[in-house]
């Protein structure tokens, strides 16, 4: 991780909270569709990161033990399991399959 990345991400991450709380928030109050769109950004973008972390190896798609672990996590999230159970189950599933 480069120094440039550390500085840029720090500014980007903390700055967006200020922008959200003090600029974007008041702006969105008068624009319901835009507000709805903003609320949906995490679903789309975070899901993209999940996909990348789960099935990508560089630029190729790899379906391996990670996918099984994340699938178990998905099932547990759907069943409203506690966070820590979700995370540990994903790791244990992946680790066990690799140990086979």
């Amino acid at each position: 991780m480069s120094v440039l990345a550390i500085v840029a991400l720090t500014v980007g991450v903390w700055g967006q909270r200020l922008a959200g709380g003090f600029l974007v928030g008041p702006l969105l109050e008068r624009r319901p569709t835009l507000a709805r769109a903003a609320g949906l950004i995490p679903a789309a973008v975070v899901m993209a990161v999940i996909v990348q972390l789960t099935v990508a190896n560089g630029k190729s798609l790899v379906f391996d033990e990670r996918l099984a672990g994340v699938a178990v996590a998905g099932l547990l999230v759907w069943r409203r399991a506690p966070f820590i159970v979700v995370v540990l189950s994903a790791a244990v599933t992946t680790a066990l399959l690799r140990a086979l």
């Binding site: 949906l40 995490p42 975070v46 033990e65 999230v77 599933t93 690799r98």
Partner: peptide, 26 residues
């Protein structure tokens, strides 16, 4: 990798957006 730690973060993210994914739009 042996400990399956590479599956921890995608799983955590899934839990984080879990409630949003419960809505139709989400």
């Amino acid at each position: 990798q042996r400990l399956g730690l590479d599956a921890v973060f995608p799983a955590a993210l899934l839990a984080i957006i879990g409630n949003l994914l419960r809505t139709a739009d989400g």
